[in-house]
Design a protein around this nucleic acid. Structure first.
Length: 932
DNA sequence: AAATTCACG
DNA sequence: GACGTACGTGAATTTC
């Protein structure tokens, strides 16, 4: 088919794909010979995903992957330093460049490069040709240099963010339409590509000038008219340099091509070509997935034994075939399964229920798997009648074993230490069984294995793990339950459908376990999994089931009081504005502040709205009452909606208590997350907010105990960075912030002022986060230079800190991860990124070992706690990162404090010896406000 | 569903 | 003088 009207050309920026793939994946090597293939693997995955998703209405009729020609381009003739400061490609990436070309051809996608030109020039030439022929073009890239091509049927697609960039998108980025982009780039230059541009002029200023004068030529010829003397001089003096820069950024639209657009027509991949290539690369998962999609047999990839010998071969699994799973209808079948499980000693298990909230959930069915490909589902309480019948019958469907009979039969297995129960998020299933009085002992959890091995690389949900490691997309739960208001509960799902879905989950979990279990050792995280993850599951399950008593009346009274104050404030604010408006809308508040009242200092968000966060309003509050009242209103609104109102809805009707849910894989660093509701962010910093904690109470005769680690992160920093003065201060029990202030500002401790101490405290905290002059300046509201001077002084006083930071970043770059003192690995795939992400990645890498070590410490304390307080009339209720909250009989409170404090303070030992003491502060009271 | 804001350590 | 910044979370609300 000749390219023309109605055709759609996709142009993929090959280099972008390669680099993205290289940085996204760990440095994989081909097993048989050690050839680095991580980038090729990622490239193939992205290409496969692209081929899959490119279908539908918007499917391309023509497509090509365009590569840069390695070596110099015509731009080096214009300017010899063009791209001269680019570092060479990483050593292990170089051999992968030709392989990515091979991969593209193997997928039967056109693949082109032209000597002496860059990929962008070829893309530009093809885009212009395609546009002239009346077709549409999508450029798959996020490179801003390509934005000059947008418009007239040409769009860009940022595949990472899945965002289309059209003419408006370009204007948002450059402040000018696509046809003026080169003018702006010529002025602004590009430090990455070494395009000089006009010194002192960035994109913002450039756009301003171009918009004022129309285009670059007009600007240069009328440069005399520019008011700012510096700018005027630059533009006059550097005119030649600017024109040359334009030549550098202007893409060639007449690149000589030895092919035509018609040659780029889309073809399906040929399995005879693609699969052998994937086999040669030894991509097991991918070739399997693609073979499945194509309906052919996956190639057999021989396992090559590796010299080290600890690299167990990946197990071979039969295909996943949901229609083959068994439905258990009678005791004979169930007993057969039980016998098989006892013989094997392990079983993958999954429960289906009526709710994600374990406290309310009722058991609907249980699935089991012992051998990959063989799984069963035991339906228990499915209702009869069609699932689409709104008034579906409440009678039980036929052919189900009685719930209690099944539980009784499974109980010995579930409670037996001799049978390992394997689950994905077993805490959920264990809590469900606990609701029926059935204890689940000895578990393994594939979600936690993934977390221990891959934290920071990807998420750990079953669907994602299945796709990634088994190349299989599980049946979506939504396909059974639907979404939104019309969603049904699992007991209304027809049993035949439920069998496929539920048994598949158990089968997948079992397969993941077979893959992950041996790999834990290879990834050197067996100890992390065994000591910090697995034993925490029953502890968290118990805490969640304990819940904490919350007094509804207290919350309700507070809500009413807040509502009254808010109504009064709202009227006052409308009065001040001179008209009614939605006080809760940042957009409208911003408009009033910065447009109507013309206050200074406003910034826009990336969507072009005025930004009105609290720190901005706080600055404005010194000038005007309006922002001050907005702040008041917002605080009340937050307290009411998120806390006093919402918490009431979370009080369990049966227990009268609030049961949060902890997500063990919630934070990459090892911290927990708390959801539904989040009880880790109950207000405490303001007096008004802190009163909400008065609603968290101990029942009659009991008292709440709060124990929290004092300065744990700073102590860990002092330890890992080896700051002797700081460590000594902690040993001596000094005020650490005052001590820092004294060292830095040469003020004796007895002359310390609160202000000086406050600054030192901000720096101490800042260091933990990977401090910057900008961040500290904003926090302390001091000039940036002053903040930078403080930081410089700090580093001078504590050179170990700078060394720690540099070493940590270097380690992350070399290994792709950082570690806590207890061996937890936090992967840092973005550490090699360019641009602003680089800063984020570095700070995250600096912070992760500190935050993560503190998280590991409290986990160890929590894991030991149940044994330590056994026999005490006490329950552990909540964890808030460095705090544990208990409920205990009043007369046993002091004893509990002694026991729990000892466990917490000694939690690092014996695995790690810290050079500083861990100190725990304790409090008790009738409610959380008093105890804290 | 994304963006904005704000609660906590 | 251009760029973008403290680290880690979850939830409610508005806006698209």
């Amino acid at each position: 088919m000749a390219f023309g009207k109605g055709c759609h050309l996709h142009l993929i920026d090959g280099s972008a794909f390669i680099f993205r793939a290289y940085h996204a994946l760990p440095p994989l090597t081909r097993k048989s010979d050690g050839l680095p293939i991580g980038a090729v693997a990622g490239f193939c995955n992205m290409l496969q995903k692209y081929v899959e998703e490119a279908g539908g209405d918007d499917a391309p009729t023509h497509a090509a992957v365009i590569f840069d020609y390695s070596g110099k381009s015509f731009r080096n003739d214009i300017y010899d330093k063009y791209k001269a400061n680019r570092p060479p490609a990483p050593e292990d990436l170089v051999p992968q460049f030709p392989l990515t070309r091979d991969a593209t051809k193997a997928f039967n996608v056109a693949c082109h490069e032209v000597e002496g030109y860059e990929a962008d020039d070829i893309i530009a030439t093809l885009a212009v040709q395609a546009r002239a022929l009346g077709g549409r073009v999508t450029i798959i890239s996020s490179d801003k240099d390509l934005m000059q091509l947008v418009g007239g049927g040409v769009e860009m697609l940022d595949a990472m963010k899945n965002r289309r960039i059209d003419r408006d998108g370009v204007i948002e980025k450059f402040g000018v339409p696509p046809e003026r982009v080169v003018d702006v780039q010529a002025l602004a230059g590009d430090s990455v590509d070494n395009v000089p541009g006009a010194p002192g002029i960035g994109i913002k200023t450039a756009a301003l000038l171009i918009n004022e004068f129309g285009d670059l030529d007009a600007l240069l010829s009328r440069a005399e008219e520019i008011k700012q003397p510096k700018r005027r001089e630059t533009l006059i003096d550097k005119a030649d340099q600017i024109l040359m820069s334009r030549e550098l950024v202007q893409l060639k639209e007449d690149t000589p091509l030895d092919f035509t657009i018609d040659d780029l027509e889309v073809h399906d991949p040929d399995p005879e070509v693609l699969l052998p290539f994937l086999a040669e690369m030894e991509f097991r998962t991918l070739s399997k997935r693609i073979a499945d999609k194509m309906g052919v047999d996956a190639p057999i990839i021989e396992d090559t034994p590796v010299a080290t010998g600890d690299d167990a071969p990946a197990p071979e699994f039969p295909p996943i075939e949901p229609e083959k799973y068994e439905r258990v209808r009678d005791m004979e079948a169930l007993n057969r399964w039980i016998a098989l499980i006892e013989k094997r000693g392990y079983v993958a298990i999954d429960t289906e229920t009526t709710s994600l909230n374990e406290m309310l959930a009722e058991l609907v069915g249980i699935s089991l798997a012992v051998i990959p490909g063989e799984a069963c589902y035991i339906p228990l309480t499915h209702k009869s009648g069609a699932s689409d019948d709104l008034f579906g019958s409440d009678e039980l469907a036929e052919g189900q074993l009685p719930l209690q009979q099944v539980l009784d039969a499974l109980k010995p297995i579930l409670a037996s230490d001799a049978v390992l129960k394997i689950g994905q998020n077993m805490k959920y299933d264990a809590k469900i069984f606990a609701n029926y009085g059935v204890e689940v002992s000895t578990i393994d959890d594939t979600m936690l294995m993934s977390y221990a091995m891959f934290s920071g690389i990807h998420n750990h949900g079953m669907d994602a793990l299945s796709e990634r490691y088994l190349g299989h997309e599980p049946i979506p739960i939504k396909s059974l339950l639907g979404t939104g208001k019309s969603a049904i509960t699992f007991d209304r799902v027809p049993i035949d459908e439920a069998v496929k879905y539920a048994a598949e989950d158990a089968d997948i979990t079992l397969r993941l376990w077979h893959l992950f279990k041996p790999r834990l050792h290879r990834e050197r995280v067996t100890t992390v999994y065994e000591t910090l993850e697995r034993p925490l599951v029953p502890v968290l399950a118990e805490m969640e089931r304990n819940g904490i008593q919350v007094d509804r009346d207290t919350l309700s009274r507070m809500s009413n009081a807040f509502a009254q104050k808010m109504a009064a404030l709202e009227a006052e604010l409308h009065e001040m504005a001179g008209h009614e408006f939605n006080v809760q809308s940042p957009a409208q508040v911003g408009q009033i502040l910065f447009d109507e009242m013309s206050l200074e200092g406003g910034k826009k968000t990336k969507t072009g709205q005025w930004s009105t966060p609290a720190d901005v309003l706080e600055d404005l509050a010194t000038l005007h009452d309006f922002p001050a009242r907005i702040l008041d209103y917002r605080q009340l609104q937050k307290l009411k909606s998120t806390y006093t109102d919402a918490l009431q809805t979370h009080i369990d009707p049966d227990t009268g208590r609030v049961h949060t849910s902890y997500v063990q894989t919630g934070a990459n660093t090892g911290r927990l997350a708390s959801t539904d509701p989040n009880l880790q962010n109950i207000p405490v910093r303001t007096e008004e907010g802190r009163r909400i904690r008065e609603a968290f109470v101990a029942p009659e005769g009991k008292t709440l105990i709060s124990l929290d680690y004092s300065q744990i992160e700073l102590r860990i920093l002092a330890h890992v960075a080896g700051i002797e003065t700081m460590k000594q201060a902690f040993r001596d029990g000094l005020d650490i912030h005052a001590m820092t202030a004294s060292e830095m500002f040469n003020v004796p401790l007895d002359e310390m002022t609160p202000e000086v101490r406050r600054r030192a405290k901000a720096i101490n905290f800042g260091v933990i986060y990977g401090i910057s002059g900008f961040g500290l300046a904003r926090n302390l509201r001091i000039p940036r230079g002053e903040a930078q001077a403080f930081i410089d002084e700090y580093f001078k006083r504590y050179p170990g800190i700078r060394a720690y930071m540099d070493d940590t970043v270097a380690y992350a770059k070399e290994h792709g991860h950082v570690s806590t003192l207890f061996g937890r690995k936090i992967h840092t795939p973005e550490i090699g990124a360019k641009g602003p992400q680089a800063g984020f990645a570095k700070r995250a890498a600096i912070n992760a070992p500190i935050q993560g070590t503190a998280a590991d410490v409290i986990r160890r304390a929590m894991i030991r706690m149940p044994d330590a307080i056994k026999g005490q009339p006490a329950k552990m209720l909540l964890q808030v990162h460095d705090e544990l909250l208990f409920e205990v009989d009043e007369d046993a409170a002091d004893q509990l404090i002694d026991i729990a404090r000892e466990v917490m303070e000694s939690a690092a030992a014996p695995a790690v010896h810290l050079d500083i003491p861990l100190i725990v502060d304790a409090g008790k009271g009738a409610n959380w406000a008093e105890a804290h």
